[in-house]
Amino acid sequence: MPDDRELASTHAADQLLGDRFPGMAATDELVVSRQSEALDSDDILLRRPLGILFWLALAWVAVVALAAIFANVLPLHNPNFQNYNAINQGPSFHYLLGTDDLGRDLLSRLVFGARVSLIVGFVSVAIGMAVGGTGGLVSGYLGGAVDGSLNALSFVILAYPAIVAVIAIVAFWGQSLWKITIIIGVGTIPLLFRVVRASSLSFANRDFVIAAKTMGATTPRILFREILPNVVPVALTFGLITVAGVIVIEGSLAFLGLSVKLPTPSWGNLISEGTSNGNISINPLILLWPSLCMFLLLLSINLIGDRLRQRFDIREGLL
């Protein structure tokens, strides 16, 4: 007869219970699960080709990036030149995408605006990854009290409405492209820290790491040879999602006129201009182009990120 007190606790329960602050599950969920069992039907599905959408997405990001990089060299009108003889024109050979209510060339404003989105998007995440990602990698592997408090701190910081901090600092420090990039970059640190830390933590006690440890590998060696290669897919995938997120934040700020100083174009303030002063009904193109570009850019980045995620076999976590 089985013992009345036979009580079993499961690993799952331990993991769920794990000493964490509320909401931490969110990012801790994003752990890598590599399944090699032949019985797993995902095995069949995950290895499918990247697909045409992936390449189209990559192409669009490349086009936007090239346009942004070579904006100065391209044969474009001055984005801020107001031609009062050509107000609210439709697309023509001279103005490929038309002009706005002040007679400015929509195409060149779009191209120069792309710079802002892309630079803020990619550079700020690079900053966040360099600081937060590295910190998370080390902290997650080493564990201990320092790691615990850093993790708790990052959670509390994430509770604070970040937009307040960003707007406040931008307002005081200055509305230049690079300052905004740095501020937003610093803002992404706690987020990227948490994600990379969770991933690093999930590898810290894997067999291959323990094996390396018993063979006398130094901590830096384990970190960079054993943990890092496994964390990179998660970091890369999540990093891309964050790029999209950051572009949205910059766009929102720009929409309110709180990003780069006007009249420097940015897609967010182009959209805002398209919305104002009855432009909507008179010349919807002002609104259409930047909205479309922004939509396609975010779509592309997300698609690329998702295909990478599938490739790396990472469970869908949380943005």
Binding site: M1, P2, D4, E6, L7, S9, T10
Partner: peptide
């Protein structure tokens, strides 16, 4: 062969041992 089944019906699987 599960003892005090009246109570056990309200239990969750994780509260039981493998054999149970």
């Amino acid at each position: 062969g599960i003892p005090s089944p009246e109570e056990r019906v309200r239990w969750y699987p994780f509260q039981l041992s493998g054999g149970m």
